[in-house]
Simulated assay, not measured.
Amino acid sequence: MMKILALTLTVFVILSPSFASPTKVALGAACDAKQLQPCLAAITGGGQPSGDCCAKLKEQQPCLCGFSKNPAFAQYVSSPNSRKVVSACGVPYPSC
């Protein structure tokens, strides 16, 4: 019984680094709505998004559903202009 436990523990320790790497990569950038500030003028005014806006939007893409559920940001994510900005940047609109 001790040999099986030791073998299992050894295999787990050897494989641990391979499990840690994808987790770090999968997490990506932290969700921070402030990062989307370059998009605010295009969303509120209906203009063309800047390159900086599109870059930040692509970084924060995994966070858009979370932003849409936050009352402080929901109006910006669900506005017709935000759909135009997202589309102009080549980012799929989130379906949450």
Score class of each variant (00 low, 15 high):
36 L>N: 00
38 P>R: 02
33 A>Q: 05
70 N>T: 13
37 Q>H: 05
9 L>C: 15
25 V>G: 00
2 M>V: 15
92 P>Y: 05
70 N>R: 13
93 Y>L: 08
89 C>N: 06
89 C>I: 02
46 G>H: 03
28 G>V: 11
8 T>F: 11
22 P>E: 07
82 S>C: 12
68 S>T: 05
84 K>P: 03
1 M>S: 13
80 P>V: 06
13 V>N: 00
20 A>E: 07
85 V>F: 08
86 V>R: 09
48 Q>W: 06
36 L>I: 02
38 P>A: 01
89 C>G: 01
88 A>N: 04
66 G>K: 12
21 S>W: 06
2 M>F: 15
64 L>A: 03
62 P>K: 07
7 L>E: 07
7 L>N: 10
29 A>Q: 10
29 A>R: 10
85 V>Y: 02
78 S>D: 08
87 S>N: 13
77 V>N: 03
16 S>E: 00
85 V>E: 03
50 S>K: 01
26 A>N: 09
43 I>A: 04
54 C>H: 07
69 K>E: 13
60 Q>T: 02
96 C>L: 11
81 N>L: 06
40 L>I: 10
82 S>D: 04
82 S>V: 02
17 P>C: 13
22 P>L: 08
18 S>E: 01
29 A>S: 11
90 G>D: 06
9 L>Q: 08
90 G>P: 02
62 P>I: 11
6 A>F: 15
91 V>M: 04
51 G>Q: 11
87 S>E: 12
65 C>Q: 06
88 A>S: 06
8 T>K: 09
58 K>Y: 04
53 C>G: 00
6 A>E: 11
92 P>K: 12
75 Q>W: 12
25 V>E: 07
45 G>P: 01
1 M>R: 13
53 C>T: 02
13 V>G: 00
96 C>A: 12
26 A>K: 13
62 P>T: 07
83 R>V: 14
70 N>H: 08
88 A>Q: 09
5 L>R: 15
53 C>E: 01
85 V>K: 06
94 P>T: 05
22 P>H: 06
27 L>I: 13
67 F>M: 07
